[in-house]
Amino acid sequence: MIFQRQNRKTMDCKEVRRLITLYVDGELDVIESRHVVEHVARCETCYFAVKSERLVKRLLKKSITYVEPPLSLISSINELYEEKRSFLPIIMRFVPTIILVLAICLALIYKINEQRFDNKIFRNIKNPPLTASISDVNKFFSIFKNNSERLFIDRNNSPNIRFVGLRYNKLEDRDAAHIFYNHKGRYISVFAISGSINDKIYLTPLRPFKGDSYIIKRDGKSLLILSNQDISYAVTGDADENELYEILSSLR
């Protein structure tokens, strides 16, 4: 019985000794750790073994202090690490910013242009001439030539539309004419610009209406635009969208 006990204790010590390094380094799991602690509590030899192992570990940790590397080494390694930085990546770093700035600039230019062109057409239509001067008519005919005839509506086809006035304009280096009609007692403005409005993007919001015509809503009123290769028309007035379209169609 006594022999068995001693034997068990020896086995235990052997096992604990194997685990001491791990225990001191915190590499044991909870159960194994408890096993060591329990054993050490009743075995002086193993207690000293743990203690001496920990002393050595702590002695190293506390006594060894790191020295600063020589400045020459620091600078040579820094140099080594700086060396591969080329000029190009620095430029590359700014590429997104440059693109962003350009995009913002373009957007601003677009916005400003859009407002400029849009407003000019609209302003011209808003202030129609009530009478046409002789020079206006002359200029108008000299510019629009053949097409201009169509602007004067065939009275047989459109008995309700009466020509009131005309004014020659210049808009963004384009030739433009402002014609004023009366339709069933309501006033209709037609604004004609030489050439097509390829830059429809300037006129916003531009909503397709019928055929090649588009609608811009301004101050609650419809502005209809028809664009072909020779002349672009913009029509506005007191009539509703369909009536304006009817006028627009008769102008073609």
């Binding site: 002393l55 002695l59 006594s63």
Partner: peptide, 15 residues
């Protein structure tokens, strides 16, 4: 006790 032990040694010695 451990502190005492550690303080017995200079860092130079441990090194």
């Amino acid at each position: 006790e451990e502190e005492k032990f550690i303080r017995e040694y200079s860092s130079r010695e441990v090194e």
